[in-house]
């Protein structure tokens, strides 16, 4: 790792560690959920930006992670196990879907459609589990109500005291930090470079003798586990999860986070999440309807005007202005 980059990582870690000292309790709690969403966005950017596979079902995998965490947390009473199960559950679902999609050699559009369909079906299925018979142990799925009374994460073992809001922020922030390091490292390793090769030209990679199928499958499973982790952390954060996580706007907003941040940058997904969430909560104060109109229009506008994402486009613009200011240096390029 180069020196400057090390400084970057350290700076990020210091800021992360310092934030709760500067912020009020409520702001810390609110920031925690932004960090959780950022992890979800990171999971999509790894899959889409690095491997070039577009999944519309990241929010659904996030939701599955949340539900699995809730079920394990309530039925077994151990929350760290719930966190692990919350990663495994979506990973298994992704493995099944990915197997059909990648080994069936259906086109890239099919995965997008199948994951979208999964989202819609889960929305309806989970919405109709209100009957008490839909329960695993003490954990009732709750239908439209969702699952309530999901235990907060506790590292002290079964029945131990749950983490306080600040401690929880550190756990979530630390996990996001680790996840980002993991994704960056992986994308630079040979596995990640082959994924990028697949993204650029799949048949060439195949002709070069790489088996693209299991690599795409593995990328999808890793991304699903990360989305699931975020979902589990979300369920622990609010002690609550309901079928809204499977709604279409929820699925769309994940794609928007990544698009705004710029595909393939990984860090950009985090930035995009924070910016979009902050803006939508502001617009949401005016009225919920405007949020969907604004989000929808952003999506159309980005696709039509900024193919590489909003943040890279902005940065290019800034760079251009800076270059022009510094007077003719760019001319030699």
């Amino acid at each position: 790792m180069k020196r400057g980059e090390l400084i970057g990582w350290t700076a990020a870690a210091v800021v992360l560690a310092g934030l709760p000292q500067l912020l009020s309790l409520f702001q810390t709690v609110q920031l925690t959920v932004f960090v959780i969403f950022a992890m979800l966005a990171l999971s999509l950017d790894f899959l889409w930006g690095i491997a070039g596979i577009l999944s519309f079902g990241q929010a659904a995998l996030f939701g599955i992670g949340g539900y699995v965490y809730g079920i394990v947390g309530i039925a077994l009473g151990t929350t760290p196990l719930g966190l692990i199960a919350g990663m495994l559950g979506p990973a298994v679902v992704a493995a099944l879907i990915g197997y059909v999609a990648f080994y069936g050699r259906v086109g890239s559009m099919y995965l997008a459609v199948v994951t979208l369909t999964l989202t819609l079906i889960l929305y309806q299925v989970m919405g109709s589990t209100a009957d008490p018979k839909y329960a695993i142990g003490d954990a009732r799925l709750g239908g439209y109500n969702g699952m309530t009374n999901i235990p907060s994460l506790s590292l002290a073992g079964r029945g131990g005291p749950p983490l306080g809001p600040v401690e929880y922020f550190y756990v979530v922030g630390g996990l996001l930090f680790l996840a980002l390091i993991f994704c960056v490292t992986l994308s630079r390793a040979s596995f990640g470079r082959i994924l990028q090769g697949i993204r650029e030209n799949e048949s060439r990679m195949e002709l070069l003798g790489y088996d693209v199928r299991w690599r795409k499958l593995l990328a999808f499973v890793i991304s699903a586990a990360l989305a699931g982790l975020a979902g589990a952390l979300f369920a622990s954060w609010g002690n609550f999860i309901n079928p809204e996580v499977f709604s279409l706007p929820q699925a769309a907003v994940v794609v928007i986070w990544v698009l705004v941040g710029g595909r393939g940058t990984l860090w950009g997904a985090i930035l995009g999440t924070v910016v979009v969430q902050y803006l939508t909560s502001r617009v949401g104060e005016v009225g919920a309807i405007y949020t969907t109109i604004v989000l929808g229009s952003i999506l159309v506008a980005i696709v039509l005007l900024f193919r590489r994402g909003l943040a890279p486009a902005l940065m290019d613009g800034v760079a251009r202005v800076v270059r022009r200011r510094s007077g003719g240096v760019a001319a030699g390029r």
Binding site: L54, M109, A112, L248, I293, G296, V300, R307
Partner: peptide, 29 residues
């Protein structure tokens, strides 16, 4: 909108998705 996106199937999906959200919003309004 759509005619600018021919030959870019995934971008078309994204744009029409945005269109879908916006249309729901406008109809609600």
């Amino acid at each position: 909108i759509i005619r600018f996106l021919y030959g870019r199937p995934l971008d078309t999906m994204l744009a029409t998705w945005g269109l879908s959200l916006a249309l729901v919003g406008v109809m609600t309004l």
